[in-house]
Amino acid sequence: MEGEIPTLAVEGLKTFFFTKLGVAQAVNGVSFTVRKGEVVGLVGESGSGKSVTGFSLIGLVDPPGRVVEGKILFRGEDLAQADEDRMRSLRGRRIAMIFQDPMMTLNPVLRIDTQMIEAVRAHEKISEGDARIRARDALVQVGIPSPDERLKAYPHQFSGGMRQRVAIATALLHKPDLIIADEPTTALDVTIQGQILHEVQKLCRETGMSLIWITHDLSVVAGLADRICVMYAGKIVEKGKISDVLDSPLHPYTNGLIGSVPSHNRRGQPLAQIPGMTPSLLNLPQGCAFHPRCPRAGASCLVEPDITEPAKSDHQVRCVNPHLETS
């Protein structure tokens, strides 16, 4: 809708890590928006900067890393300029994060109820009894059976899938406007992943919550997200509606990624592979970082390409020689 303030608007975000070996430009000028109730997939391989982007949004980048530039507009408020007190009051209440490993979220020596009640009361002045009811309801919401008993259990008494549900329930306690999920189903089995995706999808539809789903797995995002951003070496190389990007990818990297997915290929045929490997962030190639691996690279690729919209509006690509004939 025109005029509505998006839940999140990131503009030119740069997060660098100042290491002894040099400056690693982990996130280098990332811009995207997340509207209300929208699921945005942030896809990339290891080292593409997708997780650092997620951590930057919520102010959890540790030294030697630092957000050096850019705006993180959360409902109009710039989080890049917010002080630690303000971030603390937002974190967990208005913006929540789910990590790949739920044991990162959960304290192994405290019972689930202790942790969840603490999370509720950290932001709201309510009685312990009310907080317990809130925690119980959150567990029901993510489909945990017999929540009253489960509240009294310790994290190690849960299976991996159940732990991840508890982590999601904890993130939901304050009905946040935005959840950042960093590879939350990567460590889970297929059937358990299906269950979690089902719950998350339902929650977004029912509550109007926005979601950023960070993953390396295009297939998961294909089923879940409304829009997708593909990252490579710290930059978004392509973004747009999920059907536009996956059906007619413009960037050679996106095209290569889709070609690499086995289920997308004919059985027995060799997979369309991308040669080489992701470059080191300390030593990025000149110009377009993908050009040494790109089948369409030319002399013009040695200059940093701008974001353009060569095919459709709202389908942007950072490439001087995009795949236009396929669209």
Partner: peptide, 15 residues
């Protein structure tokens, strides 16, 4: 349950 790139905006119906 296998997520496939062909399936867009699908409804997950897990076991």
């Amino acid at each position: 349950e296998v997520p496939r790139i062909e399936n867009r905006g699908r409804k997950f119906m897990p076991i």
